[in-house]
């Protein structure tokens, strides 16, 4: 009971302190210049406006989902949908037990997708997510060097150095969790053929739209995200959902 009472207090505090937490933000339509060259040319695509969760899905929110969808409770979810680590950091099948407002992790791509679908949305596409990040980077005035540093710092697990004020403007897109995307797996191609150089060393010069640390950091994210399997559950993999903007 004591534990519960404390988490209640914590929860209430956070709801009042950060009212935006439980909502979404509209990412306005615009052009997305892909930082990674996937088809031998720098691609520019138009991204329609969409709504995006302002933060990664929390452990509490995911607990609510598994209560409503018992087939996604850790002891019932078939092993084809996860690697064995699914929610093993929770107290029970339906209770995180601690850090209720932290982003949920140890969820597979299958589970993340099921959550968003049940919520009327979907996982963001790679284009949507990376576009949203570029929009928020501009809004937050996060310069290229600081951006690269934050990305490298996160991947080397020193997240506390990211500037606190960035996180709100950046929607926690950097520095919290690596986020599942609907089409996160890259298939580097070379015209009709699958690129034989892709996925190993020496990709940078061929595949970056601009040869600087910021693009390298972005490419690191593309590549490492791509190397997770859909059943992977790690302590740094979470997600948020996207929704169509009517």
């Amino acid at each position: 009971m004591i534990k519960r009472a404390r988490s209640l207090a914590l929860c209430g505090l956070l709801v009042t302190a950060l009212p935006a937490m439980s909502s979404q933000v509209v990412i306005p339509a615009g052009e997305f210049v892909s930082p990674v060259i996937l088809d031998q040319e720098i691609s520019r695509v138009w991204v329609d406006a969409f709504r995006l969760d302002v933060q990664p899905v929390t452990r509490n929110e995911f607990a609510d989902f598994v209560r409503k969808h018992p087939e996604w409770q850790r002891d019932r979810t078939p092993r084809i949908f996860h690697d064995g680590g699914y929610l093993t950091n929770w107290l029970s099948a339906v209770e995180p037990g601690s850090a209720e407002t932290a982003p949920v992790t140890q969820v597979s791509w299958f589970a993340a997708r099921a959550y968003c679908e049940a919520d009327g949305g979907s996982l963001p596409t790679l284009e949507q997510w990376e576009y949203a990040l570029s929009v928020q980077r501009q809004q937050a005035n996060l310069n290229d060097d600081d951006y690269a540093r934050e990305v490298f710092a996160w991947y080397t697990q020193t997240p506390f150095i990211s500037r606190a004020e960035d996180n709100e403007a950046m929607l926690g897109l950097l520095g919290q969790v690596n986020e599942w995307l609907e089409d996160y797996q890259l298939l580097l191609s070379n015209g009709e053929k699958i690129d034989f150089g892709g996925g190993s060393c020496g990709d940078t010069a061929r595949m970056l739209a601009n040869f600087d640390a910021a693009h390298y950091a972005t490419f690191l994210r593309y590549q490492s995200r791509s190397n997770y399997t859909p059943v992977t559950t790690t302590s740094t993999l979470g997600f948020r959902c996207a929704y169509p903007e009517e």
């Binding site: 060097d145 690269a148 540093r149 490298f152 710092a153 080397t156 020193t158 506390f160 150095i161 640390a213 390298y216 950091a217």
Partner: peptide
Amino acid sequence: KVGDEYIYDHQAAM
């Protein structure tokens, strides 16, 4: 060095 921690410096590596 960033804060009290050392992290990978990509520019230096390049």
